[in-house]
């Protein structure tokens, strides 16, 4: 299992970084198709999630900070939590549930209906033809969705501050921008790029190695979601450790 996963990663690196220099290009139109599916179609879900999180964070922050008379720091807390943790993690959760599972099921169905074998026999490498476009689309769209989600989350925080805590809009924006450094944004983006890698390789690996018909496809899909969630959350803890508690 792990061996298959490592082999998929090596082969992916070859087809993305080496093969184009030998004249074997991947298809740009396929990448756009996957970007629409993985990214564009997920925007409404991401928006709703991020807005709810922004609102929730602001309410909790207000509750704790009010006791110390420090509501003025609500925007700081919302901004930092979203940029560093909530944005990248929750949006990755949505993409795992929505796109990771769909990719695993799609490739798994292709595997059991001999389509993958047919590609190989036509001398078309399934990693190049199927995995690379999904990989690149995910690598672009998950960070893009995360930026989008960050905005919406901060907007959720603003809604609470503006209408429940009587901040004025300019004050909220000032505080939020003052609290965050560019590193807070970048660290979240790096996380989200790493998550993209984890999610899509786990999903593709699960799909490409399905055995045993429709039942196998279902099992692989579930397994890919569970594995991707666990791997993503553990990686997040490690990255937070490195980024914010490291030397």
């Amino acid at each position: 299992m792990l061996k298959n996963y490592l082999r998929l990663n090596l082969s992916l690196l070859y087809w993305v970084f080496v093969a184009p220099f030998t004249g074997q290009f991947f298809s740009i139109s396929q990448i756009f198709r996957q970007m629409v599916f993985i990214g564009v179609r997920a925007t409404s879900m991401v928006a709703l999630t991020a807005f709810s999180i922004g609102v929730t964070l602001a309410m909790q922050a207000a509750h704790s900070l009010q006791q110390m008379g420090a509501e003025i720091y609500v925007p700081d807390l919302v901004m930092l939590s979203i940029l560093r943790e909530m944005g990248p993690v929750l949006i990755a959760v949505i993409v795992i549930g929505r796109s990771g599972s769909a990719v695993a099921a799609e490739l798994g169905t292709m595997k059991v209906s001999e389509e993958i074998e047919a590609l190989e026999v036509m001398a078309i490498n399934p990693v190049q033809y199927l995995v690379v476009p999904r990989f690149l689309a995910m690598l672009i769209m998950l960070p893009a969705l995360t930026i989008f989600g960050n905005y919406i989350g901060v907007l959720g925080g603003w809604a609470v501050c503006r209408f429940a805590l009587n901040f004025n809009t300019a004050g909220y924006i000032m505080r939020a921008l003052e609290s965050a450094e560019t590193w807070d944004l970048y660290s979240g983006m790096i996380k989200s790029g790493v998550f993209a890698w984890i999610v899509i390789t786990i999903a593709c690996n699960a799909g490409l190695h399905v055995e045993g018909g429709a039942e196998g496809v279902g099992q692989a899909t579930t397994a890919s979601v569970v594995q991707a969630l666990l791997a993503m959350l553990v990686t997040n803890a490690i990255l937070t450790g490195i980024f914010f508690f490291g030397a």
Binding site: E106, T109, M110, S113, E114, E115, E117, A118, L119
Partner: peptide, 12 residues
């Protein structure tokens, strides 16, 4: 070229 028993066309 190979023709599979099931056809093995790409469904997408």
């Amino acid at each position: 070229g190979m023709l599979f028993q099931s056809g093995a066309l790409l469904a997408s």
